[in-house]
Amino acid sequence: MAHPAPVIEITNLSRRYGKTEAVNGLNLTVRPGRCYGFFGRNGAGKTTTIKCLLNLLRPGSGTVRVFGLDPQTDEVAVKSRLAYVPDAVAFYPWMTVRDTLEYLASFRTHWNRELENDLLQRFQLDPAKKTSALSKGQRTQLALIGAISPEPELLVLDEPTSGLDPIVRREFIETVIGAYQSGDPERRTVFVSTHLISEFEGLIDEFTIIEQGRELLTLEADAARDRFRKISARFAQAPALPPLAGALRVRQTGRELEILANGTSDQLMATLRLLGPEELQCEALTLEEIFVATDLLKKAMA
């Protein structure tokens, strides 16, 4: 099984609202068992893409396949195998936590009661409480229980932790790692759109950065941290710099130098070593820093 069938396959997807191209020729492939990050600025087209996966929107052109199926024609088959946590969760306000979970379970052929109870206890959610009385954090927790209890093959998260306090965010991620991912690792795929990237850093296997509806960068997380590096150097005197190939950004203040390297950190380090620095360091950029550096990358590619 070198190449298992992808869980999500998006080919040349476009979708416009009036004259605005929200998604414009997007390609993306998510393999099973992975945690895939989908990063982009506000308005980059993340939510539009996710809505096309869930058949909440129809693609203008291009194809979307989930488990190899078309969400438009095989909506039930697709939706029965995935769960979705949006950023703002709405429940029927007259229902209690217990009612809501029963209601959600009634749509599912499989529902893990033990897991549901574990999570209710972990989050200390009172099953008798009305959903209208829940805080934003508790609503998200309830949505997460509703998404994980059916043990779906694909968990789609759209800005799941925005607006939550740090402790709830932490618990949310631990739950995705522990309760969800550990169940049957080969059949547990996560697709998460977020701009709180640092919290998901350890979870992300691979990611796509989307910009103006197009894919700007797709990389494995380890490969990305290997490719994008920050080099800091200090010299006895302000040096005259030779050409620095692959430098996304060079900042020099007197004797100090900072370079963002795009795949050429080894060569750049060698070049700088020849200048006899007093201090020379190289560290990987975090995924969040890489995301922030995309602007520079875009200019470098243009």
Binding site: G33, R34, C35, R170, I173, E174, I177, G178, Q181, S182, P185, E199, G202, L203, I204, D205
Partner: peptide, 11 residues
């Protein structure tokens, strides 16, 4: 538990 504690992917 180790994955949860370190908040890294179980893989």
């Amino acid at each position: 538990p180790l994955a949860e504690e370190l908040r890294v992917n179980r893989n």
